[in-house]
Structure formats: structure tokens, C-alpha cells
């Protein structure tokens, strides 16, 4: 179990190193790559891959790939929105703080939701305390959009916590 983890991380890191170095000949060069990869793996292999249920991981990855186009569309909407507000001479902003409680459980899903909130229209995550999110919204409409909870449902669906 420990050894498989070690080997998987080693192969992953070494292929990443090969991608970055883009030089495949020269034994001396490759030897130092192997050495540094082995050292990093030795120090860190018990910190990564801590997730338990590995049967669902492929399904989660697939759902995350479906989630990506939607979030990219939202990011573009967010940028057009900010550009409009900044370039308008009257500057139609009305900032406010809001809090809401989330149903998400794991750290990874909370992090994904926080990053998504920061990148989407008119909202920035400020603080997460257990399951309470503190959000700064630039206008009333964007706060109302967030409180509707579409994004939270989508993230919960990706990480299979919506049962």
C-alpha cells in the first residue's frame, strides 16, 4: 500500500520533470533528475493522495471536466461585468458583506467553491469558518445570484455530496 503510493507519485513527478526539462539524452542529466525526484517523493509521499474512496475518483474527475466549461463561461461573464462597472463614469457599485452556511463537507470541495466564488460575477470569498462562508459582494444583484445557490449545488454534484 505504502509502496504503491510511493511508486505512483514517483512516476508522476518524474514524468513532470521530463516535461519541464525537455531533454532526454545524457546519463548525467537524467541521473540528477531521478535523484531529485526520489528525494522529493521520499519527503512528501505521505502528504498527497490522502483521499479514501478511490473507486469514485474517476467519476469525480469526469464530472469535474463537465463542470469546467460552465465555470469558464461564468468567468467571462464576471470579467465583462467588472469591466462595465469600472469603465462606467458613475461607477454603479454598492458593496456589502454577506454570510451563508454551506452543506459541503470535505476541504477540497470547500476550496473549489471558494475559488469559484472569487472568479464569478461580483463576489469575493473573504473567510471560511467551518461551514460558514463570508462573502464580499460588489452589488446587490450579485449577492442575490449567489444566495440562490446554483453554484453550490453544482460543486456538491461534482464531489458527490448531494445525497
Amino acid at each position: 500500500m505504502k509502496f504503491t503510493k510511493f511508486l505512483a507519485l514517483f512516476i508522476l513527478l518524474f514524468s513532470f520533470w521530463l516535461l519541464l526539462s525537455t531533454k532526454f539524452e545524457g546519463w548525467f542529466h537524467l541521473f540528477f533528475g531521478l535523484l531529485s525526484t526520489a528525494l522529493v517523493t521520499l519527503f512528501t509521499y505521505d502528504m498527497v493522495f490522502v483521499s479514501e474512496d478511490r473507486g469514485n475518483n474517476i467519476k469525480k474527475l469526469f464530472r469535474f471536466a463537465l463542470y469546467l466549461p460552465w465555470i469558464l463561461y461564468q468567468i467571462i461573464l464576471a470579467n465583462v461585468d467588472v469591466a462595465k462597472r469600472v469603465l462606467d463614469p458613475k461607477m454603479p457599485i454598492d458593496p456589502r458583506m454577506i454570510t451563508f452556511r454551506s452543506v459541503l463537507k470535505t476541504d477540497l470541495s470547500k476550496t473549489t467553491l471558494a475559488n469559484s466564488i472569487t472568479l464569478t460575477p461580483g463576489t469575493v470569498t473573504i473567510d471560511i469558518d467551518e461551514d460558514t462562508f463570508l462573502i464580499h459582494a460588489i452589488a446587490k444583484e450579485s449577492a442575490d445570484d449567489l444566495l440562490e445557490g446554483t453554484m453550490e449545488r453544482k460543486v456538491a454534484h461534482v464531489f458527490m455530496e448531494d445525497e
Partner: peptide, 29 residues
């Protein structure tokens, strides 16, 4: 264009938290 908008937002917006909106989104995209 988005980078320039982010910089204008950094200079124009009235307080720290709203500047965060301009930099966090516009610079990333």
C-alpha cells in the same frame, strides 16, 4: 484589454475590497 481594465479598476475604485474584484478577476482572465 482586460489587463488594462484591471489596472484602471485598481486606480479608480474607492476601497480595498472593491479593488480586489478588479484585480482578482481581470488579471487572471
Amino acid at each position: 484589454f482586460f489587463i488594462v481594465v484591471g489596472t484602471i479598476g485598481l486606480l479608480r475604485l474607492p476601497d480595498f475590497y472593491s479593488r480586489m474584484h478588479a484585480t482578482g478577476k481581470c488579471d487572471t482572465l
